[in-house]
Design a binder for these strands. Structure first.
Length: 267
DNA sequence: ATGGTGGACCCTCCA
Protein backbone atom coordinates (compact mmCIF):
# COMPACT_ATOMS: atom_id res chain seq x y z
CA UNK A 1 0.00 0.00 0.00
CA UNK A 2 1.44 3.33 -1.08
CA UNK A 3 0.54 6.49 0.83
CA UNK A 4 1.33 10.12 0.17
CA UNK A 5 1.06 13.25 2.31
CA UNK A 6 1.25 16.73 0.85
CA UNK A 7 0.47 20.29 1.88
CA UNK A 8 -0.92 21.26 -1.52
CA UNK A 9 -1.63 24.94 -0.69
CA UNK A 10 -4.89 25.15 -2.67
CA UNK A 11 -6.32 21.93 -4.08
CA UNK A 12 -8.21 23.65 -6.87
CA UNK A 13 -5.17 25.58 -8.10
CA UNK A 14 -2.91 22.52 -8.09
CA UNK A 15 -5.20 19.81 -9.44
CA UNK A 16 -2.90 19.37 -12.48
CA UNK A 17 0.07 18.68 -10.19
CA UNK A 18 -1.97 16.17 -8.26
CA UNK A 19 -2.90 14.49 -11.52
CA UNK A 20 0.78 14.19 -12.48
CA UNK A 21 1.65 12.82 -9.03
CA UNK A 22 -1.15 10.29 -9.35
CA UNK A 23 0.26 9.08 -12.64
CA UNK A 24 3.93 9.07 -11.65
CA UNK A 25 3.64 7.75 -8.09
CA UNK A 26 0.31 5.90 -8.14
CA UNK A 27 -0.40 6.25 -4.43
CA UNK A 28 -3.28 4.21 -3.07
CA UNK A 29 -4.06 6.92 -0.53
CA UNK A 30 -3.32 10.66 -0.64
CA UNK A 31 -3.56 12.89 2.44
CA UNK A 32 -3.74 16.61 1.68
CA UNK A 33 -3.46 19.72 3.84
CA UNK A 34 -4.31 23.34 3.11
CA UNK A 35 -6.88 22.37 0.51
CA UNK A 36 -8.48 25.82 0.98
CA UNK A 37 -11.81 24.65 -0.37
CA UNK A 38 -15.22 24.51 1.33
CA UNK A 39 -16.85 21.07 1.16
CA UNK A 40 -19.59 22.29 -1.20
CA UNK A 41 -16.93 23.21 -3.77
CA UNK A 42 -14.69 20.14 -3.33
CA UNK A 43 -13.53 18.88 -6.76
CA UNK A 44 -14.80 15.35 -6.20
CA UNK A 45 -15.41 14.46 -9.87
CA UNK A 46 -11.92 15.22 -11.26
CA UNK A 47 -10.39 13.32 -8.35
CA UNK A 48 -12.61 10.33 -9.09
CA UNK A 49 -11.30 10.46 -12.65
CA UNK A 50 -7.79 10.08 -11.21
CA UNK A 51 -8.97 6.87 -9.60
CA UNK A 52 -9.78 8.17 -6.14
CA UNK A 53 -13.37 7.02 -5.74
CA UNK A 54 -13.25 7.17 -1.95
CA UNK A 55 -12.91 10.63 -0.49
CA UNK A 56 -13.14 12.06 2.98
CA UNK A 57 -12.64 15.80 3.32
CA UNK A 58 -13.24 18.70 5.65
CA UNK A 59 -12.69 22.24 4.46
CA UNK A 60 -13.62 25.86 4.94
CA UNK A 61 -13.49 29.07 2.96
CA UNK A 62 -10.05 30.48 2.32
CA UNK A 63 -7.94 28.68 4.91
CA UNK A 64 -6.82 25.29 6.17
CA UNK A 65 -8.74 22.20 5.02
CA UNK A 66 -7.74 18.52 4.87
CA UNK A 67 -8.66 15.64 2.56
CA UNK A 68 -8.00 11.91 2.26
CA UNK A 69 -8.34 10.37 -1.20
CA UNK A 70 -8.28 6.61 -1.63
CA UNK A 71 -8.44 3.98 -4.36
CA UNK A 72 -9.84 1.53 -1.79
CA UNK A 73 -12.75 1.84 0.63
CA UNK A 74 -12.10 3.89 3.74
CA UNK A 75 -14.27 4.45 6.80
CA UNK A 76 -14.30 8.06 8.06
CA UNK A 77 -13.77 8.52 11.79
CA UNK A 78 -16.67 10.77 12.74
CA UNK A 79 -15.74 11.27 16.38
CA UNK A 80 -12.70 13.52 15.94
CA UNK A 81 -12.48 16.32 18.54
CA UNK A 82 -13.09 19.96 17.67
CA UNK A 83 -9.58 21.11 18.55
CA UNK A 84 -9.52 24.32 20.61
CA UNK A 85 -13.22 24.72 19.81
CA UNK A 86 -12.39 26.50 16.58
CA UNK A 87 -13.99 24.24 13.94
CA UNK A 88 -11.13 25.22 11.66
CA UNK A 89 -10.80 22.00 9.62
CA UNK A 90 -7.33 20.86 10.61
CA UNK A 91 -7.83 17.12 11.16
CA UNK A 92 -9.63 14.14 9.71
CA UNK A 93 -9.15 10.44 10.21
CA UNK A 94 -10.14 7.24 8.47
CA UNK A 95 -9.94 3.51 9.07
CA UNK A 96 -8.44 1.41 6.29
CA UNK A 97 -9.56 -2.21 6.36
CA UNK A 98 -6.63 -4.37 5.24
CA UNK A 99 -6.20 -8.12 4.91
CA UNK A 100 -4.28 -8.10 8.19
CA UNK A 101 -6.78 -5.91 10.04
CA UNK A 102 -7.80 -2.27 10.40
CA UNK A 103 -5.29 0.59 10.23
CA UNK A 104 -6.13 4.06 11.52
CA UNK A 105 -4.91 7.03 9.49
CA UNK A 106 -4.87 10.60 10.81
CA UNK A 107 -4.31 13.64 8.58
CA UNK A 108 -3.29 16.83 10.49
CA UNK A 109 -2.67 20.45 9.64
CA UNK A 110 -1.19 21.98 12.80
CA UNK A 111 -1.50 25.78 13.20
CA UNK A 112 1.58 27.59 11.85
CA UNK A 113 1.74 29.86 14.88
CA UNK A 114 2.43 33.32 13.47
CA UNK A 115 5.73 35.15 13.74
CA UNK A 116 6.44 35.92 17.40
CA UNK A 117 7.28 32.86 19.52
CA UNK A 118 5.61 34.21 22.65
CA UNK A 119 2.11 32.99 23.56
CA UNK A 120 1.58 36.06 25.78
CA UNK A 121 1.67 38.49 22.86
CA UNK A 122 0.88 36.22 19.88
CA UNK A 123 -2.52 34.51 19.90
CA UNK A 124 -1.53 32.30 16.97
CA UNK A 125 1.44 30.90 18.84
CA UNK A 126 -0.75 30.36 21.91
CA UNK A 127 -3.21 28.50 19.67
CA UNK A 128 -0.44 26.33 18.24
CA UNK A 129 0.76 25.32 21.70
CA UNK A 130 -2.79 24.70 22.95
CA UNK A 131 -3.58 22.61 19.88
CA UNK A 132 -0.54 20.42 20.48
CA UNK A 133 -1.41 20.03 24.15
CA UNK A 134 -5.01 19.02 23.35
CA UNK A 135 -4.01 16.54 20.67
CA UNK A 136 -1.43 14.98 22.98
CA UNK A 137 -3.98 14.59 25.78
CA UNK A 138 -6.39 12.94 23.33
CA UNK A 139 -3.82 10.39 22.13
CA UNK A 140 -2.86 9.69 25.74
CA UNK A 141 -6.49 8.87 26.46
CA UNK A 142 -6.81 6.89 23.23
CA UNK A 143 -3.48 5.05 22.94
CA UNK A 144 -2.80 4.47 19.24
CA UNK A 145 -2.66 0.95 17.81
CA UNK A 146 -1.88 0.17 14.14
CA UNK A 147 -2.06 3.91 13.52
CA UNK A 148 -0.49 6.44 11.17
CA UNK A 149 -0.21 10.19 11.68
CA UNK A 150 0.72 12.27 8.65
CA UNK A 151 0.52 15.90 7.79
CA UNK A 152 1.93 19.37 8.01
CA UNK A 153 2.77 19.54 11.69
CA UNK A 154 4.50 22.92 11.17
CA UNK A 155 7.37 21.98 13.49
CA UNK A 156 10.88 20.88 12.55
CA UNK A 157 12.00 19.08 15.71
CA UNK A 158 15.58 17.97 15.04
CA UNK A 159 18.76 19.94 14.52
CA UNK A 160 19.05 18.74 10.93
CA UNK A 161 15.39 19.34 10.16
CA UNK A 162 16.35 23.00 9.55
CA UNK A 163 19.09 24.71 7.58
CA UNK A 164 20.47 26.45 10.67
CA UNK A 165 19.64 25.10 14.09
CA UNK A 166 21.19 28.13 15.76
CA UNK A 167 19.45 30.76 13.65
CA UNK A 168 16.06 29.06 13.73
CA UNK A 169 15.94 28.32 17.45
CA UNK A 170 14.09 31.61 17.96
CA UNK A 171 11.97 31.22 14.82
CA UNK A 172 8.46 29.74 15.06
CA UNK A 173 8.61 26.11 13.84
CA UNK A 174 11.89 25.29 15.62
CA UNK A 175 11.54 26.82 19.10
CA UNK A 176 11.95 24.70 22.26
CA UNK A 177 8.32 24.92 23.53
CA UNK A 178 6.93 23.67 20.21
CA UNK A 179 9.50 20.90 19.89
CA UNK A 180 8.86 19.82 23.47
CA UNK A 181 5.13 19.50 22.74
CA UNK A 182 5.64 17.72 19.45
CA UNK A 183 7.91 15.22 21.18
CA UNK A 184 5.29 14.70 23.90
CA UNK A 185 2.68 13.99 21.21
CA UNK A 186 4.95 11.49 19.47
CA UNK A 187 5.68 9.88 22.84
CA UNK A 188 2.01 8.85 23.12
CA UNK A 189 3.07 5.98 20.89
CA UNK A 190 4.65 6.84 17.54
CA UNK A 191 7.97 6.49 15.75
CA UNK A 192 9.25 9.07 13.26
CA UNK A 193 9.19 7.06 10.01
CA UNK A 194 11.10 9.65 7.98
CA UNK A 195 14.05 9.46 10.37
CA UNK A 196 14.02 5.67 10.27
CA UNK A 197 14.87 6.02 6.60
CA UNK A 198 17.03 9.17 6.57
CA UNK A 199 19.50 9.28 9.50
CA UNK A 200 18.98 12.20 11.94
CA UNK A 201 22.46 13.57 11.21
CA UNK A 202 21.51 14.20 7.56
CA UNK A 203 19.70 17.35 6.52
CA UNK A 204 16.12 16.63 5.46
CA UNK A 205 13.52 19.23 4.41
CA UNK A 206 9.98 19.14 3.07
CA UNK A 207 9.35 22.90 2.81
CA UNK A 208 11.16 25.82 1.21
CA UNK A 209 9.76 29.35 1.52
CA UNK A 210 8.38 31.13 -1.53
CA UNK A 211 10.35 34.16 -0.38
CA UNK A 212 13.62 33.01 -1.79
CA UNK A 213 15.04 34.02 -5.10
CA UNK A 214 16.38 30.52 -5.68
CA UNK A 215 15.06 27.93 -3.21
CA UNK A 216 17.46 25.25 -4.43
CA UNK A 217 20.56 27.42 -4.34
CA UNK A 218 19.92 28.90 -0.89
CA UNK A 219 18.40 25.59 0.32
CA UNK A 220 17.01 27.16 3.47
CA UNK A 221 14.48 24.41 4.07
CA UNK A 222 12.68 22.92 7.03
CA UNK A 223 11.13 19.49 7.69
CA UNK A 224 7.60 20.56 8.60
CA UNK A 225 5.79 17.52 7.19
CA UNK A 226 5.81 14.22 9.02
CA UNK A 227 4.98 10.53 8.85
CA UNK A 228 4.55 8.75 12.16
CA UNK A 229 3.79 5.08 12.69
CA UNK A 230 2.92 3.10 15.77
CA UNK A 231 5.71 0.56 16.45
CA UNK A 232 3.43 -2.33 15.43
CA UNK A 233 3.46 -0.93 11.86
CA UNK A 234 7.18 -0.22 11.76
CA UNK A 235 8.08 -3.65 10.24
CA UNK A 236 5.69 -2.87 7.37
CA UNK A 237 7.60 0.22 6.23
CA UNK A 238 9.50 -0.72 3.06
CA UNK A 239 10.16 2.66 1.42
CA UNK A 240 9.87 6.40 2.05
CA UNK A 241 10.76 9.23 -0.28
CA UNK A 242 10.62 13.04 -0.07
CA UNK A 243 9.70 14.21 -3.57
CA UNK A 244 11.99 17.23 -3.60
CA UNK A 245 11.77 17.66 -7.39
CA UNK A 246 8.11 18.65 -7.11
CA UNK A 247 9.25 22.00 -5.63
CA UNK A 248 10.48 22.82 -9.17
CA UNK A 249 7.28 21.95 -11.02
CA UNK A 250 5.20 24.75 -12.54
CA UNK A 251 3.38 26.79 -9.92
CA UNK A 252 4.52 24.58 -7.02
CA UNK A 253 3.34 24.37 -3.44
CA UNK A 254 5.96 25.54 -0.95
CA UNK A 255 5.76 22.01 0.55
CA UNK A 256 6.73 18.82 -1.30
CA UNK A 257 4.96 15.45 -1.06
CA UNK A 258 6.25 12.59 1.06
CA UNK A 259 5.47 9.12 -0.27
CA UNK A 260 5.88 5.84 1.62
CA UNK A 261 5.06 2.16 1.19
CA UNK A 262 3.66 -0.23 3.75
CA UNK A 263 3.70 -3.99 3.26
CA UNK A 264 1.00 -4.89 5.73
CA UNK A 265 1.52 -8.62 5.30
CA UNK A 266 4.62 -7.89 7.39
CA UNK A 267 2.59 -6.33 10.20
C1' DA B 1 16.50 44.61 10.94
C1' DT B 2 13.95 44.05 6.98
C1' DG B 3 11.59 42.21 3.24
C1' DG B 4 11.14 38.92 0.26
C1' DT B 5 6.49 35.57 -2.61
C1' DG B 6 2.20 33.24 -3.04
C1' DG B 7 -3.04 31.91 -2.28
C1' DA B 8 -7.68 33.42 -1.24
C1' DC B 9 -10.70 37.04 -1.66
C1' DC B 10 -13.31 41.84 -0.87
C1' DC B 11 -8.73 44.51 0.79
C1' DT B 12 -6.57 42.29 4.15
C1' DC B 13 -5.54 37.78 6.21
C1' DC B 14 -2.59 33.97 6.33
C1' DA B 15 1.50 31.28 5.33
Amino acid sequence: MRLMTWNINSLRLRLPLLQRLGEEQAPDIICLQETKVPDALFPAAPLRELGYDHQHFLGMKGYNGVAILSRHPIRPIEATPDWCGKSDTRHIGVVIDTTTGPVMLHDFYVPAGGDIPDPAVNDKFAHKLAFLTEVTAWFRENPPIRSIVVGDLNIAPLEHDVWSHKQLSTVVSHTPPEIERLNAWAATGFVDAMRLVVPPQEKLYTWWSYRNRDWKLSNRGRRLDHVWLTPDLQPALTNLNVLRDVRDWDSPSDHVPVVFDLDLSAA
